[in-house]
């Protein structure tokens, strides 16, 4: 299949200055030479924690940021230098409620952006009602956006991102801040778009979302791609292993070190929480080490013990490291 996005050794640095009088310059490397391709028609996911470089990648590919070095092409056009040819073909949606005019109605927003994308009037007049229908805003299309719920605003963003019928859509954390139902509706729209043949590049830090929607996923952290494969293959990183999960009230780091040394344990990660901490022990055969581990942890006030097969989340945690909070 044809590659529509090619990224090679992409680097992006930010210079941040601190202080008022004595300016201290600090170079922050947001992308550390990443490489990947996106094929026509696929849903490609960039999965990673906050600050991993997902948004930076999306902004570079949507011509909003210049690469510091490396190559980034969409439809064969350089994103920095050939943006004039590229911009009509793409569109992007950044999650959250920003990026639309709150004081205007949904319809006005769509008309305005259609015009800015130089969409022909006839096509525009036909397309806008279709888009409103697609995102379920037909009924309230003429009300001001500020009266909308978060989910409605985010769906309007999707419609806005489609005014020029782009061949590729970039979605940056589209479901951020939505309730489960709102997020599910949005995911449904995204998968519908995909079945219409659109290429979609999606960034997210929700495991489930990536698993459900993406054909391929790149797990990214601190500006590096740690793994890139189909969700199924990524899960295989861990399928040989299972997970023994112990929820405890208190935690002793020395004990964790001891558990790591138990024979058969491959990795230990911890999800810190307010009420309880979850220790996830990856191993080939949980029943063999369960006895040992529980004995060690007995002083930590064990609340629950369970074993399960590995999920995408475990693959992710294995790659990114288990220090993120849920």
């Amino acid at each position: 299949m044809e590659n529509v996005v090619t990224v090679k050794n992409l680097v992006r640095e930010y210079i941040s200055t601190k202080g008022i009088i004595k300016k201290e310059k600090k170079i922050i490397r947001a992308l550390n030479g990443i490489t990947f391709d996106v094929k026509r028609g696929e849903v490609f996911g960039l999965l990673g924690p906050n600050g991993a470089g997902k948004t930076t990648t999306a902004k570079i590919l949507t011509t909003l940021l210049a690469p510091t070095s490396g190559e980034a092409k969409v439809f064969g056009y350089n994103v920095f230098g050939e943006e004039k040819k590229l911009r009509p073909l793409i569109n992007f949606i950044f999650g959250g409620e920003r990026g639309i005019y709150w004081r205007l109605s949904a319809r006005d927003n769509l008309i305005y952006f259609s015009d800015l994308y130089k969409v022909d009037n006839k096509i525009r007049d036909k397309r806008i009602p279709e888009l409103l229908e697609l995102v379920g805003l037909s009924d309230r299309a003429d009300e001001k956006v500020e009266t909308y719920s978060k989910g409605m605003k985010q769906r309007l963003q999707i419609a806005r991102g489609l005014v020029n019928d782009p061949d590729i859509i970039f979605l940056d954390e589209p479901t951020i801040g939505l309730d489960p139902i709102g997020a599910r509706e949005l995911r449904k729209i995204i998968s519908d778009l995909s079945s219409c043949g659109k290429t979609i590049l999606l960034t997210t830090h929700y495991m489930y979302e990536a698993d459900e929607l993406c054909d391929r996923i790149a797990i990214i952290d601190k500006g590096n791609i740690l793994a890139l494969d189909t969700p199924a293959n990524l899960k295989k990183l861990c399928t040989e292993t299972s997970v023994l999960e112990v929820s405890v009230q208190e935690l002793d780091n020395q004990l964790i070190e001891q558990i790591k040394r138990i024979e058969g344990v491959e990795d230990v990660s911890i999800l810190y929480g307010d009420q309880l901490h979850r220790i996830q022990i990856q191993c080939k055969n949980p029943s063999e080490i369960m006895q040992q581990a529980i004995t060690m942890l007995i002083s930590c006030k064990i609340l629950e013990v369970s074993t399960r097969a590995a999920t995408l989340e475990d693959a992710y945690i294995k790659l990114v490291g288990g220090k993120y909070e849920k």
Binding site: L64, E83, Y101, D115
Partner: peptide, 18 residues
């Protein structure tokens, strides 16, 4: 602040004209 600056700069229409 409203997040629309990025949008109107990156549309095919010249920003100057907008």
């Amino acid at each position: 602040a409203g997040g629309t600056l990025e949008l109107i700069v990156s549309v095919p229409t010249n920003f100057k004209i907008i």
